[in-house]
Nucleic acid binder design. Structure first.
Lengths: 213, 213
DNA sequence: GGGCATTTGTTAACTTCTTCACAATTTTAG
DNA sequence: CTAAAATTGTGAAGAAGTTAACAAATGCCC
């Protein structure tokens, strides 16, 4: 599955949750299409890929579709997550309530700040980064959330790879390198900001030219 | 310009900064291509769109290219930003050092928590959300960073639209609606997490089937 | 129950994006 | 100065993704 399709599935899922709240039992392809900005035709093709069958005149079962998408994204499998870097961003993410919905549980947290070590973050005790190798053996975490300063991101990423982590959700503004068997998902916050900058320029009402006004 | 191209430009820019640090004066199309995962040919087509001319046998001038990309994304224009919601995420973003690079300056900050009102965030005083309409008239902010709980995101977004904001960088897990002339850039953190979940599944060593082993 | 409106499943056409290929250009080496 | 190597600029081929279109199925209304 390519990234564009994953992205669409995530949007469908979001829309499904909205529909569920509204009490809908079925979702039409056009309703899902609207959540992403593609045609209903495209959605139906995605549904075929998921082997979801819809009812003519009704659409796709919201519940069944939710299961299929979550399954395709492997959201049901329980997965351990380590939070590495417990600054504001680490805290914000830890408490954001996003983990459970994706099957993750925060099982460990690390920082280098002695003032933070020993404190609790979403129920786990923050340990010093030096303890990471042993600690991750005790509390297996398939992935880690890397929220450390950009300067040390690569160094800490190496630590994580050595500790056996299989995926890194990277918030640093740098491409961290890792062996091929480790997945890196970069969450480039500054890219969002730059995109906003461009979109603002696009939407700015065109300047009235000096002549001809 | 489409989103995919914007995304590539952002990656080129990142790579250019790396090259700059290493003291390189020229960047070849293949070097830039490597930062995104496309062919050098695709890069050269992007360069044409930017009207950047390269030197055969050398590549593109790092400095000139940086200017062209930053200009295309409108990163040079000074833009005011309001931070709405000064929890951990708001704090983290405010202090992340990402604003200046995209031409933004944090000019205002708001929260509903009386304990936070009056405190300082990256040099600006946090005000109560009720003051938002008037405050944004004083300190013009073309955009706002929406880091409030998901439940109130739409309500606060409406406030921002009424206050004349032209763009919203939305961190809530919901699609906020706004008039067409207001740009919404959704930073869906949970999508990143779901994508990671899928990638982990993909990379998991395939189970040895029970038979034939 | 019959007819009509709605929606899926699926193939084909269309559009967009990406890479390929190669002449033209510049640098480097001897 | 000449030849070889590297790299751009660009048109065409190829791949991938998207929409269009329509038969088949289903539900709804009277």
């Amino acid at each position: 599955m390519k990234r564009a399709q994953i992205f669409r599935l995530e949007h469908y899922l979001m829309r499904l949750m909205e529909l569920k709240i509204r009490g809908a039992a079925y979702a039409t392809s056009d309703a899902l299409a609207d959540a992403v900005g593609v045609s209903g035709s495209r959605v139906r093709q995605d549904m075929m890929a998921l082997q979801a069958v819809g009812k003519p005149h009704s659409g796709y079962s919201v519940d069944e579709l939710e299961i299929r998408i979550r399954d395709a994204l492997d959201l049901y499998r329980p997965k351990g997550m380590a939070i590495v870097g417990c600054g504001n961003l680490g805290h914000a993410l830890a408490n954001a309530g996003i983990w459970e919905r994706a099957g993750f549980t925060v099982r460990a947290a690390f920082d280098v700040d002695p003032a933070k070590v020993g404190q609790s973050l979403v129920g786990v005790t923050i340990r010093h980064l030096d303890e990471l190798p042993g600690a991750l053996a005790d509390e297996p975490c398939v992935a880690a959330c890397l929220t450390v300063p950009t300067e040390v991101a690569q160094t800490v990423a190496n630590l994580l790879v050595d500790a056996g982590v299989k995926g890194i959700w990277n918030f640093a503004s740098v491409d961290v390198k890792a062996p091929m068997h480790v997945v890196i998902e970069n969450q480039r916050l500054e890219f969002g900001l730059m995109t906003l900058s461009y979109l603002l320029k696009l939407h700015r009402p065109p300047k009235t030219p000096p002549s001809g006004g």
